[in-house]
Design a protein around this nucleic acid. Structure first.
Lengths: 151, 151
DNA sequence: TTAGTTGAGTTTGAAAAGCAGATCCAGGTG
DNA sequence: CACCTGGATCTGCTTTTCAAACTCAACTAA
């Protein structure tokens, strides 16, 4: 499942997209962050084809975002559920940035019903860039390729 | 081009993915943020099929991330180039969050050669969540669906 | 013990998207 | 005018997506 985009492994964005870049993957992570753990719950929440869901859950496990764990529902057989790893939980920052961007630039006809909050204070959460401890506007973010000739 | 994921327009993440969620799209934005503007430069940088590139540039224009503008190279015919809009430039925060995540959780064998910097100070930039003016760890970001019964 | 039940995947066949390469096309230049 | 060049489309093939039907294991109920 590595390298779906030509696999430039020097680019961290390409490496993130190796895990997250396929159709449905980020929506599965969104549901997982909202507490969904079971195959059928992902399926009915997203309306995703079952075979695609099985493939995506597999590559998220392989990519270290989810892990499978046994669970036993009362009056049912033992099954597996999908839990976020520490790495997976850190994706909430990416989803926050995606959500903030849509709220600013893709307003919905019926207004957005999803809010991002700080679980401790209840205050609205927002993604920002910082450099040297201070918040900077996103226009000041630049990428530099360290072209240090190898060898 | 709307609603590739079932189109839950109440979810801001789904609305972002309507524009950004298809294969290659975020890589195109990455190149655009690095200064690429021309069809052929995107094509040779990414190795993307030309028909797919034309389709993606079109949906990025339609989605308000890029805009087409005429330009005239010396000694060549008039052509069009693709420039980021203000909304497109704000995507740098999302790419920063993606890049930070990969650097932490998907280290490359040959170490990452891409750095994100503050263009004013040269300091390393990082994406974080803030709430009520203070930085909060990503585990504290929670989503709440405002289920206010309409009507 | 044997027949249902139920949730989690797999299989199947058709539709859509992706792909590499060839082609087209407009408007320059020699 | 013939030719070149960058931008985009067309062609035939492969891969992915999709919806629906099917399998499968382990519970429960009779």
């Amino acid at each position: 499942m590595l390298g779906i985009l030509g696999g430039d492994d020097r680019c961290p964005i390409a490496r993130s997209l190796d895990v997250l870049g396929e159709k449905w993957t980020i929506m599965i992570v969104r549901d997982a962050l909202a507490g969904v753990t079971r195959f059928g719950d992902f399926q009915s929440s997203l309306g995703i084809p079952r075979d695609v869901l099985a493939a995506r859950l597999g590559s998220l496990v392989e990519g270290g975002v989810l892990e499978r764990r046994d669970y036993k529902p009362e009056g049912g057989r033992r099954r597996e559920e999908y839990l976020l790893t520490a790495a997976g939980r850190e994706l909430s920052l990416i989803l926050l940035a995606l959500g903030n961007w849509a709220d600013r630039h893709r307003p919905s006809p019926r207004n957005s019903r999803m809010r991002f909050l700080d679980s401790e204070t209840g205050a609205t959460a927002q993604a920002v860039a910082i450099a040297a401890g201070a918040v900077i506007p996103s226009e000041r973010i630049v990428t530099r390729i360290e072209d240090a000739a190898v060898g």
